[in-house]
Design a protein around this nucleic acid. Structure first.
Lengths: 320, 320
DNA sequence: ATGAAAGCGCTAACAA
DNA sequence: TTGTTAGCGCTTTCAT
């Protein structure tokens, strides 16, 4: 019989199977996009766990678009995915709440909205990491440290900003409004950088000597623009990112940053959603993964011939 | 009635719908991985077309692993996806043939195996592009041009190599065995670079003065390693990539390369699979997309203070 | 117009 | 052991 099936090129029909078993063996995975290897590393982590289970992920992107996010979430529900894992978007709290209330396990990735106390999430504990980053800038002699962020009203993003402020204060420095630029949520980073540079460097008497960026995705185009404007990094201004996306370590870029444990987030997200599926009664899973893994590179330090890295001495730095 | 449905949080069941209609509205999309924004750009192209149709893509990765590729292909078949789009892998020709024979439209991306005359594909016409790249190296004064490739027995990859050889010959140069390194298919690029550098630079009397890389994915770690070994780019050796992956253009990297029309490939792949679904009788769709878009950057040219780019003069170059 | 029923392909339970 | 059947949720057809 099996031979005949093979001979006839029989392929079982998953829709029928899933209908009969009322179980799909599928997990919805909705990431922002496939940029800069974040999804690559995340999925590696997830697959490491899922490969030995009956589940397989359906990957989709929301591209920071509310309508698309809603559509993909709906598709996932219609497909009867047994769990959903997604990078959250603001203004979707209500949808997330509905999904969780309807009994589909939902795990948020990387950040989570406030006022979602009952929801599950797996995030990098990036508040302390931001403190490490800012402290590094202070240790290499910087005192006028600017903040470049993006308007993403989520808990961990806010903690990074809060860590920036409190780390400055602890060092006896005063965070200044003119050295803070929070971009509207947009994909047009060119416009963001133009506005940020005008604010930071427009007045020669109050230039910052370092810029702390909310994430590497902001730091990279910033470096591009600084280079184009002839502002020397790290001499005139040091730059710190957050995340350690793979190519930031390339010699020619050398962005100083703190490593986000992306693969671990993938692994833990997979474990969390499995846990929610198998033991829904045990309530939400909330994981905060530490990583204080500072990567000191060219954008904050000088490489000296004998092989070490040193801070840029004050006399080599920009002055009005 | 609709109100009651909404109130009861009714969500239609896709499995049941697909079973009844024997039509899934799904397309299988299997890419190698989510590295270096290839899949990002590709999917942008696809979504641009698919968003206005009833189809939505199911994205999966094969990670250059035959078993995983087979599994994802099988899943796609079981899901009754109405078409499949995938980056081909060697040794899967038989599977591709079976799928196409069984009536599921199949479109290969980026490259295709020889001896698959009846299959559909959408590829970059990278042979002429490779010729443009090699000619650029010759024009900036390089004469000892090495080839760094990877063992990927597909038509377009072979054409790039063939273009390398014939472009050298046309310029009166002789391709030499010692300046050719073809890596085994592996993800361990570190080992590949170690072996390649030993072969190219081991003998000071026969160093190449340029390296033409099959793709940017090879060129990036090569640059890394050259930097680490203290071999100056472009002074000692010029480097050309192929593809123009987004971050290769960052100021600090500045990889000279030729642009692969990735978004166009995504768009055309979507159109092709739709065409195959709607008009299967019209036979395979084979699209070869031109792009000779040379991006001249730091790894082949010197930036001079007055704003232009010039070749490195011979006296500044390495000699034994 | 509205309602009833058949059937998509599978699996599990039950009958022989 | 082997064979038969009900039913998962939907859409279409056919009957009322």
């Amino acid at each position: 019989v099996l031979e005949a099936a093979k001979a006839a090129n029989y392929v079982p029909n998953r829709a029928a199977r899933s209908l009969r078993l009322s179980r799909s063996d599928g997990l919805g995975v909705i990431v922002a996009d496939f940029r800069a290897d974040w999804a690559e590393q995340f999925l590696n982590g997830m697959l490491g766990v899922l490969d030995s289970t009956r589940f397989s992920p359906f990957v989709a992107v929301h591209r920071f678009d509310e309508a698309r996010s809603r559509k993909e979430l709906q598709t996932s529900l219609e497909r009867r995915d047994e769990g959903i894992v997604c990078q959250p978007l603001p203004k979707q709290e209500e949808v997330y709440r509905q999904i969780a209330a309807a009994g589909t396990p939902l795990v948020l990735l990387g950040d989570y909205p406030a006022r979602m106390s009952g929801c599950s999430y797996v995030v990098w504990d990036s508040g302390p990491a931001a403190a490490v980053a800012v402290r590094h800038l202070i240790e290499v002699g910087r005192r006028r440290i600017a903040y470049l962020g993006v308007d993403y009203p989520m808990v961990m993003s806010r903690r990074r900003y809060a860590a920036y402020v409190s780390t400055l204060r602890e060092a006896g420095l005063v965070p200044e409004r003119k050295w803070e630029y929070v971009a509207p949520a947009t994909t047009n980073l060119d416009a963001v950088m133009t506005a940020a540079l005008r604010q930071f460097f427009g007045d020669p008497d109050s230039r910052p000597d370092a810029i702390f960026c909310l994430n590497d995705g902001l730091a990279m185009p910033l470096l591009q623009r600084l280079e184009a404007e002839g502002i020397r990094v790290p001499h005139d201004v040091a730059v710190m990112g957050m995340g350690d996306l793979p190519f930031t370590g390339y010699a020619g870029i050398g962005l100083s940053t703190v490593r986000e444990p992306i693969t671990e987030i993938g692994r833990e997200a997979a474990l969390s959603v499995l846990q929610l599926i198998e033991h829904p009664e045990q309530g939400p899973v909330q994981k905060v993964i530490p990583s204080l893994d500072l990567r000191v590179r060219r954008t904050t330090m000088l490489r000296v011939p004998d092989g070490g890295d040193v801070p840029v001495p004050p006399e080599q730095r920009w002055r009005p």
